[in-house]
Design a protein around this nucleic acid. Structure first.
Length: 209
DNA sequence: ATGGAGATGCTCT
DNA sequence: GAGCATCTCCATA
C-alpha cells in the first residue's frame, strides 16, 4: 500500500497539535489524513466535545468512567465507543493528559485502501456502497477504517498526517445531541460531498400513563 | 428531499 | 430501566 506518486498524506502532525482545546483543534483537523492499517481517510467533517462539567454533550461531562477513560489520557490517542447496540464511533483525544476532551470523526474521503474500505462497508450483502458514502457519517467512517473496540486507546500520533488545506470551513450545531446543541462545534469542509447530511436531535416523548 | 420506525447491546443511574 | 455523539429501509413529495 502507499499513496502513489503524489502523497496526499504529508508529514505526521506532532502530539502537541492535539494538546489544545478540542474546539480549536477541530477546524484545524479538516483536510488532514488519518491512516489506519491499509486505509487512509481525509477528514471533511468533525465535532468537538468539551471538558467535564462544561459541555453537557460530552461523554466526559460527568467525569471519568471505565468507558471514557481514554479521553482522560494523553492527547493524540483514539477513543472508540460502541453505541446504539451496533455502531462504533471514533474520536481523537485532545487537551493535556487528565483533561477529558476529544473530537468525533464524522466524515471523510477515503484516499487510500479504497478496495478494503468498500469490502468492509458492503459486508455480506452484494450491494455496493457508493464511494462518497464510504466514510460519510461517524459509524460508517469507523467501519471503513476498521476502527473496533480493540483500537480504543491506540496512539495515533504518526498516523495523522498534514494533508492538504480545505477550501473553507463552516461551523454549526452538533448532530444528534440534545444538551449543548447551541455550541457551533460541528465543523465541515465547504463543498465536500463526503460531509454527512445534518440531522437534528429528535426529542424522545414520554407516554403518560 | 425529508421523515419516521426499528434494530440492538452497553453504560450509568 | 432509560438513554444513547447512528444507520438502513420504507414512505411520501
Amino acid at each position: 500500500m502507499g499513496f502513489g506518486l503524489l502523497s496526499p498524506g504529508g508529514e505526521p502532525l506532532p502530539r502537541s497539535f492535539f494538546d489544545r482545546p478540542s474546539e480549536q483543534v477541530a477546524p484545524d483537523l479538516l483536510g488532514r489524513v488519518v491512516v489506519h492499517g491499509s486505509v487512509a481517510v481525509r477528514l471533511t467533517e468533525v465535532e468537538a466535545y468539551g471538558v467535564p462539567g462544561e459541555d453537557p454533550a460530552s461523554h466526559t461531562y460527568r467525569g471519568e468512567t471505565p468507558r471514557n477513560s481514554v479521553m482522560f489520557g494523553p492527547p493524540g490517542h483514539l477513543y472508540v465507543y460502541f453505541t446504539y447496540g451496533m455502531h462504533f464511533c471514533a474520536n481523537l483525544v485532545c487537551r493535556p493528559e487528565g483533561v477529558g476532551s476529544g473530537i468525533l470523526l464524522r466524515g471523510g474521503e477515503i484516499v487510500d485502501g479504497i478496495e478494503v474500505a468498500r469490502a468492509r462497508r458492503s459486508g455480506d450483502s452484494a450491494r455496493a456502497v457508493g464511494d462518497r458514502d464510504l466514510a460519510r457519517g461517524p459509524a460508517r467512517l469507523a467501519v471503513a477504517m476498521g476502527f473496533l473496540r480493540e483500537h480504543n486507546g491506540a496512539d495515533m500520533v504518526g498516523r495523522v498526517l498534514a494533508g492538504a488545506p480545505v477550501a473553507g470551513v463552516s461551523a454549526g450545531p452538533r448532530t444528534g445531541v440534545a444538551a449543548g446543541a447551541e455550541r457551533p462545534w460541528r465543523f465541515w469542509a465547504e463543498g465536500e460531498p463526503t460531509v454527512s447530511p445534518y440531522r437534528k436531535h429528535v426529542p424522545k416523548v414520554r407516554v403518560a400513563r
